[in-house]
Design a protein around this nucleic acid. Sequence first.
DNA 1: AAAGTCACTTTGTAGCACAAAGTAGCTAGG
DNA 2: CCTAGCTACTTTGTGCTACAAAGTGACTTT
Lengths: 95, 95
Amino acid sequence: MEFDKLVHQPTRLQIFASLYANGETSFTDLKDDLEITEGNLASHIERMEDEDCVAVEKQFVDRKPQTTYRLTDRGTELFEAHVETLESLIDGLDT
Amino acid sequence: MEFDKLVHQPTRLQIFASLYANGETSFTDLKDDLEITEGNLASHIERMEDEDCVAVEKQFVDRKPQTTYRLTDRGTELFEAHVETLESLIDGLDT
DNA sequence: AAAGTCACTTTGTAGCACAAAGTAGCTAGG
DNA sequence: CCTAGCTACTTTGTGCTACAAAGTGACTTT
């Protein structure tokens, strides 16, 4: 049983889950959904970018800047693998 | 969605899961199962004891000291609650 | 009495997470 | 045009925590 620290960290696990479930999500929406500070979100996203887990798109919407994120293939894989790890841990509880 | 840091930490999550699935487990068995150092195991157990999650029993078996651990009611509750949190996160992925 | 075993305890370090405050690019209003 | 305001960071700093490694103590075996 191995835990990927990058994915397992609580806040990032929720970022992964949110991006996985909702597809593209904006910086502001993520921040509001997870109720975390901007700096905190930015630093977690940065780590995920460093590991090629998140792709970033910057554009203007309604004449305001908007940054959207989505999981890369690698990010999706890592998250799915981690979910499987969690599921197998939970399944193992009945033995 | 709230994550209990005490339970969510990777090593402790596995300690919780192991105790939950196997009931009483000895120090040595836990150490071997999880492949961690003694100091590391002891410190995690200590934190769990501080939070009333683990009960400790010390006795001699075959004339050797043996310490066994089991989850307290509170420990069991916290773990089950955390598993539910994880399950609901996973279930939420289909939306 | 010397060595070994189990179960810690102590000590030290490096790596986060997080908050708070500062910054940069762009837009809107007077 | 210049100032205020918004979004999305970046920087800075602190405090916690995991973890390894080495030391300790109670007891047993030889």
